[in-house]
């Protein structure tokens, strides 16, 4: 599904990713851990197409297609979804209208008809239930005045609605209370399938108790420095990152 080869990227003349390799297959869940400032969010940004990152070397393909050449919206339509570490508030843009627009853009790209208002409502209800997202929030302005946890849940609600191939969750667990964490994890587990894949960026092994990963990677100083199974997360929790340097 996703193939990252020797990826180098910089932001404002500072090299952040320094030859990163990662292979993610359909149906898999990969966790990425690593110290603050290692480049985890940067990797997510590069995959999503944030403009201030410049890729200087390497390649990224999604099902064989070069996504680095694509605009952010094209990547999204191809099935890339980033749940942001810090979702932005956009006053005046209604959450639900925004989602409807996004969903229909993606459907059009896939050769499907736009959803009718009724179908959309139905789907929205279903997914709200799945991630236990408050109906009141659905009708508000996008993230405006949402609590930190509500913003994170909104990201997962969007994920559920848009059904991407590849979902990258950047510290979605940070700032979630224990109930929310359980709900979000349950949602993600229900969304997991043979046809999609997840990359979970996290600092806490706790999340991985709920969403069990196939692989755990350590990203440090712009590269993957260690890869293991889910037991690696436990080891990291115990020993920290210093022993890997």
């Amino acid at each position: 599904m996703l193939s990252i080869k020797n990826l180098h990227a910089r932001v404002e003349d500072k090299e952040i990713l320094k030859g990163l390799n990662l292979e993610v297959k359909a149906g898999e869940v990969h966790a990425i851990m690593g110290p603050n400032g290692a480049g985890k969010s940067s990797l997510a940004s590069v995959l999503a197409g944030r403009e201030n990152y410049e890729v200087t070397e390497g390649s990224v393909t999604l099902d064989g297609k070069d996504i680095l050449e694509m605009a952010p919206e094209e990547r999204a339509r191809e099935g890339v979804f980033l749940a942001f570490q810090y979702p932005i508030e956009i006053p005046g843009v209604s959450n639900i209208n925004f989602l409807k627009t996004a969903l229909n853009e993606i459907r059009t790209h896939r050769g499907l008809d736009p959803m009718t208002a009724k179908e959309f409502l139905q789907k929205s209800k279903e997914k709200q239930a799945l991630v236990e997202f408050d109906a009141k929030l659905v009708n508000r302005s996008l993230n405006e005045g949402f609590s930190g946890g509500e913003k994170k849940r909104n990201e997962i609600f969007q994920l559920a609605m848009l059904e991407p191939k590849l979902a990258i969750l950047d510290e979605t667990d940070s700032g979630l209370d224990i109930d929310a964490l359980r709900i979000v994890s349950r949602g993600v587990n229900k969304l997991r399938s043979e046809n999609n894949a997840f990359i979970l960026i996290t600092h806490y092994q706790r999340l991985l108790d709920y969403i069990v990963p196939d692989y755990v990677h350590v990203l440090s100083d712009g590269k993957i420095v260690k890869t293991g199974g889910k037991e690696l997360a436990l080891e990291l929790e115990e020993k920290g990152y210093d022993w890997l340097k």
Binding site: A48, P72, V93, F98, T101, L103, E105, Q158, L162
Partner: peptide, 16 residues
Amino acid sequence: FYLKSRGIGEEQAKQL
């Protein structure tokens, strides 16, 4: 960028 990252095109994102 947030809007685009959800599949909404540049022009439409600006309109929103």
